[in-house]
Structure formats: C-alpha cells, structure tokens
C-alpha cells in the first residue's frame, strides 16, 4: 500500500467515522440521558436522505434542501417527542423498543407512499464537484473533505453546547440527578424535548449531507442504526466524547478492514466491540 492510497483510505475512514458520529451522538444522548432506546433513529437518517433528494430536485440546490430539511426534522423531532416519546420515559425499555420499532415500519411505509421504492442519486453541488489530485492517477473528491469539515464543526459546536452553555449545564445536571434538577426549577421535559429534536435533526442532517455519496434507497437507515448502536456501546452510553472516539475507531476499522482483510470485513466492527467490552464493560467513557 503506497502512501497516497493509505491517505485516501485514512480520509475515507475519518469521513465515515465523523458521519457516524452525527447519528450516534444523538442516539447516545437520547439513550443515556432520557433513557429511551430509539430504534427509529436510523429512520431519521433515511428521512434526511430522502428529504435532501426530493427538496434538492425541487429547489435545484442541495444547500437550500438541507436548510429546509433541517427545519423539517427539528419540527418532526419536537412533534414525535410531544406525541409519543414523552409518554414512555417511565416505562420499561421493552415498551420503548416496541414503540420505536413500530415507528420504523411507519416511516418506511410513509417513505414508500410519498417517495416510492426506487433508488435515487443526489448530485454533488457544482461548486464542490471536483477532486484534488494526489498522484498521477489518484485523486480525492472535495465534497468528502467538506463533509468531514462540517461534521467536525458540528462536533465542536456540540462540545461547546454541552460544556459551556446554560442549556448544557441543565442537560448534564438532568443526566446525573433528574429530580434535583427539577427541584431547582429546570423544566426537564423541555430539555428532553430539545435533546430529542437535536438528535433527530443531527441524524437527518447526516442523511442529507451523505446523500450525494451513498445514494438514496429504501431501508437505508437499518444498517446505520446497527452500527450506531455499536458506537454507543463502545463509547459508553450517554457519552458524546465516547461516541466521537468510537465513531472514528469504527470508521477507520471498517474502511481499512475492507481493504486489508476483505474476507472478515463484515465482522471487524463486532470483533472490535467484543474486545472493548471485555476490556471495559461500561464502554470507553462515562456519561456526560
């Protein structure tokens, strides 16, 4: 493997990992802080991709599609939390699994009714549709670099939100002692609603920005959901920092696995999870 090829795999692995982080960070917050197992999280990723495709073909602009799509996913998150999720906080995980599994079926059916069952492609915006040459016959697409940069910026924004803002303090306080936070006048239900909406929007946004790379197809949320649960378990449930480290680990492991040991590539992620759990059963990091 020469250097340029290695560099490309490295960038691909990082980009994939950063994208996973967007989906997994919401999943880990919703699971770790609100205590909700959200199987429908992958559906939000799919929904984002379909929104990007359909809105981009309407507006002829991926950026406009994403801006509009983010607003829609935030509203969807708020509505879902208000209508369904908040009635399941006190319930056993089994009920939450049933509810959110049902949501997957509903979202897939709605997708089929609204957008059909075809596979679609989303063009990369013209401005970013070129590649940087690395060697004579290898080059790297700029769009992937832009995605990675955007993911990094969002990760930084999330870090600042949680570590530096008043809302972040409330989220952390609520995650360690919900009752005490309430007794200090914090409207924990509102905080939970915001966390849920943020998680939905992040997963949807990941689907939107990745649509030009992955194409848009039915059931595309399933695979992402499973990998993201692996990320959450490796990183430690409820830890955003852990989600970042685990996402990058898995992104790199899967990318290099496919190139170096293609025979066992499908297993690598799970072997990694097993190894981490043997070493640290609670995952790499603790809750917020």
């Amino acid at each position: 493997m020469d250097l340029a090829f290695f560099l490309i795999q490295l960038l691909n692995g990082l980009q994939y990992g950063l994208l996973l982080f967007l989906v997994a960070s919401g999943l880990t917050l919703i699971f770790g802080i609100m205590g909700i197992i959200n199987l429908a999280h992958g559906s939000f990723y799919m929904l984002g991709a379909y929104l990007a495709w359909s809105l981009a073909s309407m507006t002829n602009s991926l950026v406009a599609a994403i801006a509009l799509g983010v607003v829609l996913t935030v509203l969807l998150g708020i509505a879902l939390e208000w209508l369904l999720i908040r009635h399941f906080y006190e319930r056993d995980h089994l009920y939450q699994v049933l509810l959110t599994y049902g949501l997957i079926l509903v979202f897939e059916e709605m997708r089929s009714v609204i957008w059909g069952d075809d596979v679609h492609g989303v063009p990369v915006p013209d401005l970013l549709a070129y590649s940087i040459p690395l060697t004579e016959n290898l080059s790297y697409p700029v769009y992937r670099l832009v995605i990675s940069a955007v993911c990094l910026l969002l990760a930084l924004a999330m870090y600042l939100l949680i570590a530096r803002t008043c809302l972040g303090m409330m989220i952390r306080a609520g995650s360690s002692n919900r009752e005490m936070a309430q007794s200090l006048g914090i409207n924990i239900k509102l905080v939970y609603m915001l966390i849920f909406a943020l998680g939905v929007a992040l997963a949807g946004f990941a689907g939107m920005i990745n649509a030009p790379l992955s194409s848009v197809f039915p059931n595309m949320g399933g695979g992402v959901l499973i990998i993201c649960f692996v990320v959450v378990v490796i990183g430690g449930i409820g830890s955003v920092k852990g989600a970042m480290v685990a996402s990058l680990l898995i992104g790199l492991a899967e990318t290099f696995g496919q190139v170096l040991v293609p025979e066992v590539a499908g297993m690598i992620v799970y072997l990694l999870m097993a190894a981490v759990l043997v070493w640290r059963p609670e995952g790499l990091f603790r809750k917020l």
Binding site: M170, R172, S175, S176, M180
Partner: peptide, 20 residues
C-alpha cells in the same frame, strides 16, 4: 435542600451554583 444533598458530581462547583 434534600437529604443526601443532591450535588451534581459532573458539574463544577461554579456550575452547580450558577446552573439554576
């Protein structure tokens, strides 16, 4: 001020004070 105090261990002293 509850029995057992209810400090948020994952917040600093400053954050515990200003959060509410």
């Amino acid at each position: 001020v509850p029995e057992g105090r209810g400090i948020f261990p994952n917040l600093t002293v400053r954050e515990n004070l200003v959060m509410a």
